[in-house]
């Protein structure tokens, strides 16, 4: 791999992603764990930029770091003993097996033609702009049905959350 801006960026963002992930699983402090998670997610946003998908990168930061991670922080702070987690998870062998299995499945899934493989047509030479992405979401030949289904699902989830959290006496 030749040394240029993209490869340097790839190395930096990989350090962010993997280092952040390592921090999440090693720290004994739940709050620091959430911060490491954000570092990791930030690295993933960097990958999107390297892949010429700035829209997805901005959404990644906005949704994961700006919204979900803040939500997790609130949840973590409401739990007891944030800084001193005493319980240790010691079943190393099953967790090692499970993570190895997941890793292998992902590697095979991406490289081997199990799920249809990677055909050259899937990676078009032209870079799709944000405008193309937006048009594809509302185009009847594109993804309008999944898009609408996802919207309905999210609305349903929101109404459900309000219904469960509602104070019945009021």
């Amino acid at each position: 791999m030749e040394l240029n801006a993209i490869s340097i960026g790839f190395v930096v963002f990989t350090i962010f992603t993997l280092g952040g992930g390592f921090g999440v699983v090693t720290t004994r402090n739940l709050f620091q764990g959430t911060i490491w998670l954000m570092v990791s997610l930030f690295g993933v946003a960097g990958y999107f930029i390297l892949l010429s998908a700035p829209f997805l990168a901005a959404v990644q930061i906005l949704v994961y770091i700006g919204a979900i991670a803040i939500l997790i922080t609130f949840a973590v702070m409401l739990t007891r003993s944030v800084t001193r987690v005493k319980t240790r998870y010691i079943r190393l062998v099953p967790s090692l097996l499970a993570s190895l299995a997941l890793f292998l499945i992902l590697i095979f899934g991406v490289t081997m033609p199990i799920f249809g493989g990677v055909s050259p047509e899937l990676a078009p030479a032209t870079v799709a702009s944000t405008r193309d992405l937006g048009a594809a979401l509302v185009d009847e030949n594109g993804y309008v049905v999944p898009f609408l289904l996802a919207s309905v699902l999210l609305t349903g989830a929101m109404i459900g959350a309000i219904f469960i959290a509602r104070d019945d006496s009021a």
């Binding site: 954000m38 700035p54 829209f55 901005a58 906005l62 770091i65 700006g66 919204a67 991670a69 803040i70």
Partner: peptide
């Protein structure tokens, strides 16, 4: 001149919230 300029502003501003929390 980012294609996603306005979205970039919103995404970056969310770091400020994070800083206050931290």
């Amino acid at each position: 001149d980012l294609e996603i300029g306005a979205l970039f502003f919103v995404a970056v501003a969310s770091f400020g919230t994070l800083a206050i929390m931290v």
